[in-house]
């Protein structure tokens, strides 16, 4: 169920803005139909989250189409014009470089970059914030950026994992775990995937497909003879849409 603190109630009008079958519609419909109460300060805040989730999905599709290379940390690569590759395989925004240009460059010169699946999710999140904020606010907000899987994330994004969530929505990040992974391919110990809506997901290094596609891909990298399948964990990871909205609102 969706509730607005401001008293807005015309949810149908919000739903009518989106085509049935679109990720935005699926997100709003699921939220409205849930037994859990989702509270928003206003319809504007809900719009912000809806649009940002769309940007997350668009950025995922762009990385897929751009054929971002899958590279483990030891072999990660980046465009040194904008990023500094650290000893641990993470990337740091080069001092003096524009954060918006640097993030855009990953999508423009994708062939110059290579990373593993969790860092790809962070790239997607930053791109989604860039598309939500615009370059000027993005550059003012992010003076430094580190891309190193789930570590050292900017406080504003406040990426959090919710265990046993009441619902999953398009734009969410899920995790498929491979408990019997081959010790010679630890990079396939699990896959972070973005829910694209309509039962489809994007996972860097595996591609786009339904859940079965990802489970089968991970199962191919199990200890030979294992009968323990990869599985979707009962958790979801999301950026702090509310904090990002408030920052955008205050800056507007």
């Amino acid at each position: 169920m969706i509730e607005f603190v401001s008293g807005d109630t015309d949810l149908q009008a919000i739903l009518d803005q989106y085509q049935q079958g679109s990720p935005e519609y699926e997100f709003l419909r699921k939220m409205a139909d849930s037994s859990y109460i989702y509270r928003f300060s206003s319809s504007e805040e809900l719009d912000f989250e809806t649009n940002m989730r769309r940007h997350i999905i668009d950025a995922s599709l762009a990385l897929f189409r751009g054929r971002l290379a899958f590279r483990i940390f030891q072999e990660s690569k980046c465009n040194e014009k904008y990023w500094i590759r650290r000893r641990d395989g993470g990337f740091e925004l080069r001092p003096g470089a524009s954060a918006s240009e640097a993030v855009d460059d990953i999508f423009r010169n994708t062939r110059l970059y290579g990373t593993e699946c969790a860092t790809a999710i962070m790239i997607i999140y930053y791109k989604a914030v860039l598309d939500s904020y615009g370059p000027a606010l993005f550059d003012r907000t992010f003076r430094s950026i580190t891309l190193m899987n789930w570590q050292e994330i900017d406080d504003l994004l406040n990426v959090a994992t919710y265990r046993s969530p009441p619902d999953y929505f398009p734009g969410d990040c899920l995790y498929v775990r491979n408990p019997d992974v081959d010790p010679l391919t630890p990079e396939w110990q699990g896959e972070n995937i973005i829910d694209l809506g309509n039962g489809k997901y994007y996972g860097h290094g595996i591609g786009i497909g339904d859940m079965d596609h990802f489970i089968k891909a991970l199962n191919r990298n199990r200890i030979p003879g294992s009968e323990v399948s990869a599985y979707l964990m009962d958790s979801v990871t999301r950026p702090d849409f509310r904090a990002l909205y408030r920052h955008w609102k205050n800056a507007s």
Binding site: E116, A118, N149, W150, Q151, T161, G190
Partner: peptide, 12 residues
């Protein structure tokens, strides 16, 4: 639990 640093920011 099987959670890891590759899975989320604050694994348990």
């Amino acid at each position: 639990t099987g959670e890891s640093m590759q899975m989320c920011t604050k694994p348990l």
